[in-house]
């Protein structure tokens, strides 16, 4: 199977390393970062590209643009792993449209296009007879979308709720453990690389909200946007509030919740019993799905990370290969 990778950051490089380390039968024929690109039908030397990137250089040649890779490289699947943009989905949206229009499958970890334009993209994929897969957009390594679409296919989901943002979970875990203030815990998360310089997207619950929109629109037959999510972040939480919860064997977690029948999408800090399976430590994610046939299921795993997110992307790639790509 031949793939082109757009974006050579944490996730893109995680995919490259996994391809190098394991015999996955995947050849990379196109690659681009923000400033450069490579097209090589015989297969790109990934180790060289990784080394160049590690040394601060571009992964390829400045003459080849990301758009060139989308339009001209010879690939079966486009892997779109550029930064998320929740306002207009670009540049990923353009990349994905371009690939689907060329009858190429698409696998992405990019939340923007899926949250903003799933119906259009799905229709475009169907019209071109190709797959659009996005497992990595929600909860990193946890195969939540696959489980809901395939394993739980016959079930009606009455409620879905969980910890969708590892950064917030880390901050709350630390506030509870050592009575840190929000600011102290955030500073620590930044130092460890768990929080961005501008943490707004995580701590205001936007990231979790976008993930809810993706699940609602792509699996639960809802039509929602980020504006439909009732959203409260964690910035006002106090160590005293966590202690008051602790006194009752509870703690506080940022919980994303969907109640399809009531049309509720909500991200807010909630009091949760410490014995509840959703109370996971550090940057872990955890999601409980309430269903009619299967009962309640809780999924726990790493919600981010280079290798972990690559795992979800590779799962989607192999899914497509096993079903649709001939002659790879």
């Amino acid at each position: 199977m031949r793939i082109a990778i757009l974006g050579f950051g944490s996730v893109g490089r995680g995919i490259a390393r996994a391809i190098l380390a394991k015999n996955l039968d995947i050849t990379v024929t196109g690659l681009a970062d923000s400033r450069s690109g490579i097209i090589d039908p015989a297969g790109i030397d990934l180790q060289t590209a990784l080394d160049q990137k590690e040394n601060g250089g571009p992964c390829g040649s400045p003459e080849v643009s990301p758009a060139d890779v989308v339009a001209k490289a010879d690939y079966d699947v486009l892997v779109e792993v550029t930064p998320t943009n929740v306002d207009d989905g670009e540049p990923a949206l353009g990349h994905i449209r371009g690939a689907l229009g060329r009858q190429k499958h698409v696998v992405t970890s990019n939340k923007g296009p899926i949250a903003l334009a799933y119906p259009e993209l799905r229709a475009l994929a169907a019209a071109n007879g190709v797959f659009l897969k996005y497992e990595a957009t929600v909860c990193g390594a946890i195969p939540l979308i696959h489980a809901m679409q395939e394993g739980l296919a016959g079930n009606t989901i009455s409620r879905l709720y969980g910890v969708f943002n590892g950064t917030c979970n880390y901050i709350l875990t630390r506030m509870a453990e050592d009575s840190l203030t929000y600011e102290q815990a955030l500073a620590e998360a930044r130092e460890l690389g768990y929080a961005e310089a501008d943490p707004t997207y995580d701590v205001e619950g936007i990231d979790a909200g976008v993930k809810l929109v993706i699940l609602a629109n792509t699996i639960l037959d809802m039509q929602t946007t980020l504006d439909d999510v009732e959203r409260t972040g964690i910035t006002l939480l106090t160590p005293e509030a966590l202690q008051l919860a602790e006194d009752q064997d509870c703690t506080i977690r940022l919980i994303g919740e969907i109640v399809p029948e009531a049309g509720v999408l909500r991200v807010s800090p909630r009091i949760v019993a410490k014995a509840h399976p959703l109370v996971v430590e550090g940057t872990l994610n955890a999601v409980t799905v309430e269903t009619d046939l299967a009962g309640d299921l809780t999924f726990i795993g790493k919600g981010a990370g280079s290798t972990e997110t690559a795992s979800a992307v590779i799962g989607d790639l192999l899914y497509i290969r096993d079903r649709h790509v001939q002659g790879s």
Partner: peptide
Amino acid sequence: LLIIEPLE
């Protein structure tokens, strides 16, 4: 005021 409700 910020109100934190229980999950259940």
